[in-house]
Amino acid sequence: MPSYKCPKNHESTESDFCSVCGAKIQGSPEVTTAVQKTATLTCPDCSAPHDPHSGNFCEICGYNFTSGAHGDLPPANITPTPLLKQEELTSSIGEKTHLTWAVVATVDPSLYEEGSPQPPTNQAPIIFHLEKENNLIGRSSSRRGIYPEVDLDFDDAVSHRHALLSCQPDGTLIVRDIGSTNGTKLNGVELTAMIDAPIKEGDELTLGHWTRMTVVAANS
């Protein structure tokens, strides 16, 4: 009989919810085989995938998987990542997409609002290639050990852990504001924290004082 590990480390005979304690089993086995990983958990706080071998803490929000202690983020209303349907998965495995994503961050002085510091004039556009499955948008902090993939240090209204760009197994990209202080706008529309929004080439994210990011797709 197949068995699944639940977040509380029970051996579950059911794949969706633990057959012992009823806890939601994150990252169903179908999904994990599709992305060629052994077993991943999903962080109950920010729902980012978590590889148990990489340690006890969620790399995105700092949730402690052993003690259940919350990270920096206030525990928010979680909308669990909708698990991909089986057929979507199989089809995506068949025809491998070679799409890779990048975002270009620029300082846009037109986003300046009263109260913000004057935008720097010498900030050149930065291209961030999204090489990982999950890419944190934020500001680095050596004290807190935060080193975002999309590092927007020049804008101090960007939260250290601001949002997440996740490359999906089917080749699409989603953005999720992970409870940032000042919010994120997608094409001018405020995102709801912890709700995934699919994004495509040309979409623009605005955040912080005056940071504008454009999504770019590149064939590799």
């Binding site: 059911e14 969706d16 919810f17 633990c18 304690c21 009823g22 806890a23 939601k24 109950p44 706080d45 259940g68 525990p75 928010a76 209303n77 979680i78 669990p80």
Partner: peptide, 15 residues
Amino acid sequence: EVQPGNVGDEMLAGR
């Protein structure tokens, strides 16, 4: 009746 969880926790109370 289940053991109360943390805000954000989802669990199965019955099958």
